[in-house]
């Protein structure tokens, strides 16, 4: 799991990822956390070393890349091979449009779930420091969290049965 935390939206991503981590731990999955300062060197080396079968990326992005700390491009088109054999959920703008498509079409990524437009958050002005108490924003994050919590469990069940 990759979690940036350096501006209001990434702070929301950072906090709202916690229920996913808790559920994964409860189900007995090993969760490796990268963040809140996500650099290209660290993320690529951790993925190479640990070879996770599911990647959950939280941060800013574009059609061509997923970004780390302070919008540094960390996983870009030339790095797509890193997704080979993996399922990826990228909670970032636009990544599914270019990065995701290339990863699946050309680099053997098992599945890439993401967004083809901007990721939008709506929040209370008073909740910047306490995202989990934000009842306006809650539906956005609970819906988005359903992707890793349901996909992951289903996929692992299928792997276990095969």
């Amino acid at each position: 799991m990759v979690r940036n935390d350096y501006d209001p939206i990434t702070h929301y991503m950072y906090e709202w990822s916690k229920p996913v981590i808790s559920l994964a731990a409860k189900k007995g999955f090993d969760v490796d956390n990268v963040g809140p300062v996500v650099t290209k060197k660290e993320i690529l080396s951790r993925i190479e070393k640990l070879s996770p079968d599911f990647l959950f990326l939280n941060g800013h992005g574009s059609s061509d890349c997923f970004c780390g700390y302070e919008n540094e491009p960390v996983i870009c088109m030339p790095d797509c091979g890193i997704f080979r054999g993996k399922m990826v959920f990228s909670r970032s703008c636009d990544c599914a449009k270019g990065l995701g498509r290339k990863a699946v079409d050309k680099h053997g990524c098992t599945a890439f779930i993401g967004y083809e437009y901007e990721f939008i958050n709506v929040r209370l002005t008073t909740s910047e420091l306490t995202p989990m108490n934000d009842y306006v924003s809650r539906p956005i994050w609970e819906t988005s969290n359903a992707v890793p919590t349901r996909t992951r469990v289903t996929a692992c069940q299928r792997l276990a049965e095969s």
């Binding site: 209001p8 800013h60 901007e118 939008i120 709506v122 929040r123 209370l124």
Partner: peptide, 12 residues
């Protein structure tokens, strides 16, 4: 009026 909307990397 007590709402902020964040649009991708453009900000809030």
């Amino acid at each position: 009026s007590n709402i902020l909307i964040s649009i991708g990397g453009f900000g809030e």
